Amino acid sequence: MSPRLTRTTSKYFSSKTNVPETNKLNKSSSLSKTVTRKATRKHINIEIEESSSVNNLEKRLDKEPPTPPTSWEEVYNAIKEYRKNIIAPVDTMGCERLADEPSDHITPQTSRFQTLVSLMLSSQTKDHVTAAAVQNLRQKLPGGLNLDSILQVDEKFLDECISKVGFHRKKATYLKQSAKKCKEEYDGDIPNTVEGLMKLPGVGPKMAYLCMQVAWKQNEGIGVDVHVHRITNRLGWCNTEQAGPEATRKVLESWLPRSLWREINPMLVGFGQTTCFPQYPKCSNCPVKKMCPSVSF
C-alpha cells in the first residue's frame, strides 16, 4: 500500500503532540577503533569500542547509566504524531499482524506459532514478501499453517512455499528444526521466554523480544532491527552504529521508559520505510529535521 496523507488509527499511535522536524546518515569517523560521543545536545555521554561485547556494555551501563538525550521526548512524540498520518508497510503487513487470531478453529498455540514463523521469515525480507510467504504457507500446507503441518511436509516443499523470502533454504531448515524442538520440548507450543526462543534455530534477539511482545503479550525488551538501529543512531540517542543492534537495545533500554519498548519498533520501522531511508533520507519532509544532528538537505 502506498503511503498517503490521511488520518489513520493504529494500536501503536494514539496520543497527540505538537510537530517539530529530521535526518541523514552520519558519515563521521566510523573507521576509528573507538567511537566517542560527548554529552552535547542530544548525544548520550557514552563511549563504545567496536570490539566491546554486549556483556561488557551492560556492565558499563549498570555502573554509569547514560543521561537520556536532551529533548528526546519532543523528538519521539513528533515522530509518533507524524506516523499517525503515514501508512507504512509495517502497519498493514508487519509480523505482528500476520498470525491468525485465536478462534474456534485456531488455537492460541497455533496463533503463537504463526507469529514465530512470520518473524523467522521476516529477516532480511521486505514486509510484503513475508506476508505473501505466510499466506502461501496457509494455503499450501496440509491443514494450514501450524506446527504439525510444518513437521509433515518435507523440507524441499517447505522451501518452495517460502522461496521469495531472503535465505529461504536456510529458513526452511530452521522452520523444520524449530517445529521439531517445539513439539518435543514445549508440548507443541513455542518457548515463553527470550532465552528459550533464542535457542530455536534461526531466532535472534530482535525476533525473540518481538515474539514475546506479540505472541505472549510480555514486554521483555526492545526489538531492534536495522531501522531502529539506524534511526536511533542518526538521532544521537545511541552511539552504537559500529557495535551493532544488541548494543543499541542495551543503550535504549537503559533510559527509554519501559512503557515505550513495544511501540518504538513499529513506529521507527515505519518511519524508516517511508522517510528515514538508509540512503537519501527525506530530510526535507522530516518532522524533526530541526532537532536531528544528522540532518542533510
Rank of each mutant, 00 (worst) to 15 (best):
M1L: 12
T6I: 04
T6H: 08
R7Y: 15
S10P: 02
S10A: 03
K11T: 14
K16S: 15
P20I: 15
P20Q: 12
T36N: 09
K38C: 14
A39K: 09
T40Q: 03
H43M: 11
I44M: 09
I46Y: 11
E50D: 12
S53F: 00
N56A: 13
D62V: 13
P69D: 11
W72G: 00
R83A: 04
N85C: 11
I87W: 08
A99H: 10
P102T: 05
I106T: 14
T107L: 03
Q109E: 02
T110N: 00
L116I: 01
M120G: 13
K126F: 10
T130C: 13
A131V: 15
Q139N: 14
N146Q: 08
L147K: 03
I150L: 09
D154Q: 10
D154Y: 05
F157V: 15
L158P: 08
L158I: 11
E160S: 10
K164N: 10
K164L: 08
K170F: 07
K171A: 02
Q177P: 05
K181Y: 00
C182M: 08
K183P: 02
D189M: 02
T193M: 06
T193E: 08
E195I: 05
G196H: 00
K199V: 00
L200C: 08
K206F: 01
Q213P: 05
V214C: 07
G221S: 09
I222E: 02
V226S: 13
V228H: 00
T232A: 07
T232R: 02
R234N: 04
L235E: 06
G236C: 10
E241G: 04
Q242I: 04
E246S: 07
L252P: 03
E253H: 12
N265E: 07
L268F: 05
F277D: 09
P287Q: 09
V288N: 11
V295Y: 11
